[in-house]
Design a binder for these strands. Structure first.
Lengths: 262, 262
DNA sequence: AAGTGGTCTAGACCACCCC
DNA sequence: GGGTGGTCTAGACCACTTT
């Protein structure tokens, strides 16, 4: 006989709770209690069909519940696995402090190296374009054209973040900012050299399910939301000099802020 | 004939892309382009079965894709509807500033009133308990027992946030903090009166799919993630005096932080 | 070749909502 | 009562992974 009865119970077809929910409940509890550990393969659909005496669609339905919760993921031809918790990248609110800018390398690379991960940046694209609505609202409606700097960040080969910086064209055109490599300290260092001493950042944070495009770009498993962060940088004249739009795989990030209790 | 051809196309069963994904793509695009507006009912399963010439499960499968993306929600016996954008509550990083504490009412009530919404707080529970691991880590491992203050926040009848404050028992026991109504300015005002002048807050932000319990408590639609915020308050002695664990319906919130570019 | 999940069909019965 | 979504069955064929 199957060894499943040891880890899973039975279902009650007469219960008010749908059978596929009962199965999902049992699998969820087994995972929570560690009876299936991270990365471990769950019983196959066929095994569960046999164990519970239900049709295959019922079993698949219960898997889809767990996938929606981000608890498991399916691999075609291999099985359904307990989703391992991802290595988490911690983003501190002082990550743009001037003192971190003095070194040559970007915050992302330095940080990841320190954490023992292998960081990469790809899909670098720098181009002029028309400011979208969200960008124009934040840079000021007089800004029609912007320089957009897009890049994707990867950790140990896994895409974790996709970011686009938008800068008013009158500030960025024909400067080092418009080049793929903006040089040591990144674009913030260049902005300050251009006379735009940075004064403060506004950050807006939302969370939502990803669009199909985001699922592709970040290779997101089902049941993984994204954190959408929009940062606006202001210089000491109060002018918005950059809007950075960042979409992060939520299972890879913790954002940390330190606030004074003024 | 059905009037659907005007808003929806046809599918290609020989395509590599699964039929239910093609249908989901078309519905998504129609929604994005406003051919179905917020709150509007999508064609019924039966209509789509007829229009596309596929089985009902295929249509349902495409609906479930869109539900997972948080784009639509189904109402039993009524239909499938385009999810309206929720009224959004903006949480500013200075919401705990001392100047906001002088008034009598809680930040939540004042803010919501100002925004023209009807705020409520319920499920108020105040009790002593053993500090959980996450709480003990932040309050300091010497803190074994805590006072827990739980409450749920609603906006216009919709639950949007569930929060629990944990305070070291030696600070909170037998004070106004241990009462359901902690009085004007809330527990932070009481903490300061007790000699714990607040110095700073640490906030950690994560996003993930909700647990079944959170789905119930916040009456979350499928495809809506939660924002999980853990705030630790420190007094001027550097002691952690409160940990507040907050779970928010992600579609109801934007978190806003203002950071100095030091 | 065997086992796995991915897609799809064609039905069935039920529970809920609205007229 | 008629329309809607919710659940479930019992098959079928396919694509992918592993042996």
């Amino acid at each position: 006989m199957s060894s499943l009865p040891g880890r899973l119970g039975t279902v009650d077809p007469t219960s008010d709770r749908a059978v596929f929910r009962q199965i999902a409940d049992q699998l969820r509890e087994a995972i929570d209690r560690g009876r299936f550990s991270e990365g471990e393969k769950l019983p196959s659909e066929a095994e569960l069909v046999e164990h519970y005496g239900v049709s295959r669609m019922t079993v698949r339905n219960s898997f889809s519940v767990l996938q929606g919760e981000g608890l498991v993921h399916a691999e075609h031809g291999r099985g359904v696995f307990v989703r391992p918790r991802q290595p988490v990248r911690r983003l501190a609110s002082d990550r743009f402090a001037r003192r971190h800018r003095e070194q040559g390398k970007s915050a992302f690379l330095v940080e990841a190296d320190a954490a023992g991960s292998h960081p990469e940046v790809d899909s670098l694209e720098v181009k002029e374009e028309k400011a979208g609505r969200d960008v124009a609202v934040r840079l000021g409606s007089s800004v029609r054209r912007v320089l957009a700097r897009r890049r994707r960040y990867l950790l140990d080969g896994r895409p974790v973040e996709f970011a686009t910086s938008y800068l008013p064209i009158d500030i960025a055109r024909a400067t080092r900012i418009a080049e793929p490599d903006p040089g040591p300290g990144g674009i913030y260092a260049r902005l300050e050299e251009l006379g735009h001493r940075l004064d403060r950042f506004d950050e807006e944070i939302r969370a939502r399910m990803p669009s199909p495009a985001e699922v592709r770009t970040l290779r997101l498993a089902s049941g993984v939301p994204v954190i959408h962060l929009i940062r606006t940088a202001y210089d000491t004249d109060g002018r918005a000099v950059e809007v950075c739009d960042t979409v992060m795989a939520a299972d890879a990030y913790v954002l940390a802020y330190q606030l004074p209790a003024t």
